[in-house]
């Protein structure tokens, strides 16, 4: 009986008060948005500019894309917050499968 009550408590709105983001303002989102725009500009600039070498550009823009993706997942989709343990686990497993798939296919085709 007690255990059940405890689980009920865990899922009750009261216990979420501290973490609930209804109090959280738009600030982190505006920051993420601003940085995403900056990163996008950087990526386009790196490609458009003649001065930057190809060997640098490709890893650089891929890095920027990964950071932007992290913004989407962790800030806009709240993946780092409470109640997101399983989403986090499964998205990371998905990313693992995705990386193996892409790397496997392209390495074996380009060879």
């Amino acid at each position: 009986m007690e255990t059940n009550l405890q689980t009920e408590m865990e899922h009750s709105p009261q216990s979420r008060r501290e973490t609930a983001h209804h109090n959280e303002g738009p600030k982190p989102h505006l920051w993420a948005f601003f940085l995403s725009i900056v990163f996008t500009i950087l990526a386009f600039a790196a490609v458009a500019s003649e001065a930057v070498s190809t060997a640098f550009t490709i890893p650089f823009i891929i890095f920027l894309a990964v950071v932007q993706a992290a913004f989407q997942l962790f800030i806009w989709m709240h993946m780092n917050q409470k109640d997101h343990e399983f989403p986090l686990t499964f998205m990371m497993s998905g990313v693992f499968a995705a990386v193996v798939t892409v790397a496997g296919i392209i390495l074996m085709i380009w060879w």
Partner: peptide
């Protein structure tokens, strides 16, 4: 969220 995990592999 799990569906999005599958979509990751799809893309």
């Amino acid at each position: 969220w799990l569906f999005l995990g599958a979509e990751t592999v799809l893309f």
